[in-house]
Design a binder for these strands. Structure first.
Lengths: 242, 242
DNA sequence: CGGGTTATTGAAGGCTATCAACCAAAGTGG
DNA sequence: CCACTTTGGTTGATAGCCTTCAATAACCCG
């Protein structure tokens, strides 16, 4: 089901990984990052559509996306699904459900992907000779709390066009910080997944993409997006209801 | 602005606090909880409406609610506010914004309240002779991640009556785990605050309360709530759209 | 008691969901 | 290689939920 590959001695470690500025080492001093190299002992390769973990699976690690992208989703007792995030390289998934030691969500690859396995026991072990490790892990978890709080603001107070604009701008910014184009990228998720994530239907998402394109804000061809008028998109968020 | 009171030597510590089963010590062995007693060196007393921390304030501690209740809220560039949570005794606030070391939200007392100050430096110090402290702190942060993800599901996929029912059931359960009545309690927040939190207007909230009362699900008098038909409220959540 | 906040209730309208048809692309199998 | 199927996306018409605007009522605190 999953391909687990041990990290070869000469393979990339945290200290040499291109994602250091956004992943686990974010904000750490270079000298400290060196001590992270034994943190990841294993990686998992996932084909598109494969599950990294799912509801009720025991939780003993979190995962840093190395390449590709994932979605994380909750499933309630009636089978209703809610996507809680789309995750690009450098982002950490699996940080919910630690209270009871089992996952309360599922993580699924949107494309062929690979993640670094960060075992919690390794985190604790590394922390013994790298005191800032604890603080670092708190910062990573805090980042996820902040992210989901901001999503709450989006779902709670924005209308459909604002949500989709915010979604595009958010992706744009994240791709930019990975060194990719901030104006031209490929959506790895379907209209239905975007709609689920944003609390909209797939039809509304599709209509909005069409409208944004008609108004010259973006150019969209299937899942290829080009942002044409970034300021106008930003303006959609700010000064609308006041 | 705030009253900061040092914890007297004979005052209640974590090991003797009635909230142990839901607060920082949640799930820890009794022998370990004893070592938490030096974690909290200070408490803050807040009058109704006072701010515990606000946007951009430096973050060096998190706070456990000792009595009373708080709301936490984001504020965007246009002044638009989104309430991200209501917090009862035993719950921890202030765990966002650690990435940049300053708060990205504000916490405000809904009634006269008191919180325990948990300095991050103390967390780290306690962890040196209580190895499970790290794990414990991760679990607390994970609880907040899970909570906000579930809120996302509520805002993303439920209709107004379901959101309000879920809100009432959630409060009911939290009061129950504090040893209070699960069927009779006082809402500490206004209709407007409930609406903001649930992504609804205050009028919709008011109408729904009236309707629930008319249908015999609850009895409501201003902010006093009595739940009359718990099963029916639960049924509102489950089997609606399928 | 009185002024201001908070809550309730009504009517109208807009936004988004729902239902449905159609289209395009990508497989599938003969 | 071409019908056929499947999946994902677009677009239209309609209905309904919830917001908005507005007026009234209840409550609270000085």
């Amino acid at each position: 089901m999953q391909k687990r590959v041990p990290v070869a001695p000469d393979a990339a470690h945290c200290s040499t990984c291109m994602l250091g500025h956004v992943c686990v080492p974010v904000g750490m001093a270079a000298a400290e990052v060196e001590k992270l190299d034994e943190l990841v002992k294993e990686r998992v390769r996932l084909e598109k559509g494969k599950m990294l973990y799912s509801l009720d699976h025991p939780l003993d690690a979190v995962y840093g996306v190395r390449f590709g992208s994932l979605k994380t989703q909750l499933e309630d007792s009636t089978g209703q699904i809610q996507i809680t995030g789309f995750h690009l390289p450098g982002e950490i998934v699996g940080m919910d459900g630690m209270l009871d030691g089992k996952h309360v969500s599922a993580a699924i690859a949107l494309e062929d992907s690979e993640v670094c396995v960060i075992r919690l026991t390794e985190v604790d072990r590394v922390a013994t000779h790298l005191p800032s490790m604890q603080q670092q892990f708190r910062r990573l978890m805090s980042r996820e709390i902040t992210r989901s709080h901001q999503m709450l603001a989006s779902l709670g107070s924005m209308r459909s066009e604002q949500r989709l604009a915010a979604f595009l701008l958010n992706l744009s910014q994240r791709y930019a910080s990975l060194g990719y184009s901030s104006t031209e990228f490929v959506l790895r998720m379907s209209r239905e997944e975007i709609g689920n994530f944003l609390g909209l239907t797939l039809e509304t998402v599709s209509r909005l993409f069409s409208r944004f394109a008609r108004e010259g804000l973006i150019k969209i061809n299937q899942r290829e997006v080009r942002i044409l008028d970034l300021p106008a998109l930003k303006q959609l968020l700010g000064h609308e209801g006041c």
